[in-house]
Design a protein around this nucleic acid. Structure first.
Lengths: 115, 115
DNA sequence: AAAAAATACCTTGACAGGCGAAGTATATAA
DNA sequence: TTATATACTTCGCCTGTCAAGGTATTTTTT
């Protein structure tokens, strides 16, 4: 069962920023964390992920730096900025509001909760 | 406060089908119902709404017919099909799964519930 | 030693859905 | 008579996703 990407779409940035709220990280690792948290059910497509990084950096919500020489391939680390933290809070609030709205609009009582 | 359309995007069809689960209806009316249910917070843009009708009809999830001559302007009524009802159930289930996934991924504990 | 897989990043071009803008047509309210 | 409400339609732009392809290094397997 695949998750329709249009359902995740509006939350891409929020997911990335949420991850960076905890610690600096890089694309590959963020994706693996998402995969782990969702028991392998979800992961960004690479093009989507790196496009999102670019978008977020241009908007000033994250900054990036090359990781120290490490054992494996080179890594570009991302760090959330103050403005990014504010944005994350705003996006969370947007999600909560839209979630409630959607629930109000799509419920017809035909489905059990949690189904 | 506007709702980001990317947060609604994946639910456009679900919202329309949910409305048609209750009774046949037409574009303008569906939009007014949505506006009422959300206390004026949301409404589809016309182009979005009519594009969605076309998409749903081509997919066989709804059918349409012109309303009887009425007092105001002509109305194209839409009716949900059996396949449309199945699709609605599937979309509801998709929503529930993705909603849970998203919550798992965006929560960092910084925000109170319902905020 | 060679091949394959894992780690890690990047870019291009196509596609789909949302939507601003503009248009059509009728009825009612000011 | 002018504006507003009702009601639908189409065109073209914009944005985000993603298939496909590429680069480079390290580790594991054969």
């Amino acid at each position: 069962m695949t998750i329709a990407s249009d359902l995740i779409r509006g939350n891409t940035d929020t997911i990335i920023l949420a991850s960076l709220m905890k610690k600096d990280s890089y694309g590959y690792e963020i994706n693996k964390e998402i995969s782990a948290k969702t028991a392998g059910e979800y992961e960004f497509k690479e093009a989507t992920l790196y496009t999102a990084f670019k978008r977020l950096e241009e908007a000033g919500f994250i900054t990036s730096y090359w990781g120290e020489d490490n054992v494996t391939a080179r890594r570009r680390y991302y760090s959330i900025t103050e403005r990014g933290k504010e944005e994350y809070i705003n996006l969370l609030s947007d999600w909560n509001r839209s979630k409630n709205m959607i629930e109000k609009l799509i419920d017809t009582g035909v489905m059990e909760d949690g189904e």
